[in-house]
Design a protein around this nucleic acid. Structure first.
Lengths: 195, 195
DNA sequence: GCGTTTCTATGACGGTCGTCATAGTAGGGG
DNA sequence: CCCCTACTATGACGACCGTCATAGAAACGC
């Protein structure tokens, strides 16, 4: 994932997202975020007066923005964009990361949903918004490829569902098998929707 | 999910699974499990000398066994079993629960993977085994419906990936939309594999 | 120059966590 | 009756958590 983030505040949001990706929200401590971001602990209450929940929600929102932006860049990089090609690129990003860096990290939005959706309603809403932004980007890309308007939304939901599930399976299995499988199985179905 | 469990030990494993479903592993405390199970706290170290990790791993294993058994019961309950029918039943179980009890709970194996896979290798292996047992049950059911041997495994992986992802989306959105969507979109693809 | 706002430093507080030490009770075989 | 095993009760320990109070440093307008 992008390394960006200039100021201490952005670094903390980014570091929070990375830690959440790997251990979830509850297991991620504020002191740990500060250390990971090489940020001053003293400024935590200044930048995030809403406490941990605010930081987590911003990390989730950042992840949604990142995922949506990534979809646009995938499409832009393809000279002849197809739905199966987009999905392969999305899955491929995870395959690359897992093969390069190991299976320590998952999707921060999934992690936040799994352990905070029931306890912190604002965090649940942040996750919902992140998924909506991401799904919207995928659906928009699909319509740009010729997928009928009424089909793009459901197919985008299917793509993201299958991808997220395969990410979990990949982490549990320490294997990219599930990611490759869903990409291969879903490809023809997705391309059949064009026209 | 089944309420079963006679002895205090089984009750604690079951209660742990339920709590993990809703708040993940880290946020679930041992004292909380004991209270939920109406079990004696004093016997925790007796029944689970391996501590929290052992309890969590057994809860994950229980979930895998439960999911696999549920698949068999779904198939047995259908007079003319089809892959799409099985998937609809799997998704329908979650739709029913969410509409009946709200969106507080997810899949315990996903939750355990999300926040312990990187920190506790035995828990990761328990999750892998749970997914393997579940996937095996689904693949076996598919072959029993006439799906060629080489296709059953990948399709089972696709089904579980899409289902798990849709569960996360459903919790984030407080809506069964994603579950209904993946069931509808995947149905024809699955049935096309028969023969 | 000064004052004000923005940011950082540090230590403490109350609470909860998983684990452990120690002791006690129940129950069945001899 | 005794003993041994299975199980339960209770309190404490050290570690960590998120948050807060308080104070100091930097940046900037005027």
């Amino acid at each position: 994932m992008a390394t960006g983030a200039r100021g201490p505040r952005e670094r903390m949001v980014f570091a929070a997202a990375q830690l959440i990706r790997r251990q979830g929200v509850t297991a991620t401590g504020m002191r740990e975020v500060v250390a990971e971001a090489a940020a001053p602990r003293g400024s935590l209450q200044h930048h995030f007066p809403g406490g941990k929940e605010q930081l987590v929600n911003e990390a989730v929102a950042w992840a949604g923005r990142y995922a949506a932006g990534r979809v646009a860049r995938f499409v832009a990089a393809m000279d002849r964009p197809t739905p199966s090609g987009l999905f392969a690129a999305m899955a491929g990003q995870w395959i690359d990361e897992y093969q390069r860096d190991g299976y320590a990290r998952g999707c921060p939005v999934v992690a936040a949903t799994a352990d905070r959706a029931d306890a912190a309603e604002p965090t649940r809403q942040a996750a919902e918004a992140a998924f909506a932004e991401w799904t919207g980007a995928v659906a928009g890309a699909l319509t740009g490829m010729g997928v009928p308007a009424g089909r793009a939304g459901p197919l985008a939901t299917l793509m993201i569902s299958a991808l997220e599930g395969a990410i979990v399976l990949a982490r549990a299995e320490h294997s990219v098998r599930a990611l490759e499988t869903v990409a291969a199985e879903l490809g023809p179905l997705l391309d059949a929707a064009v026209g």
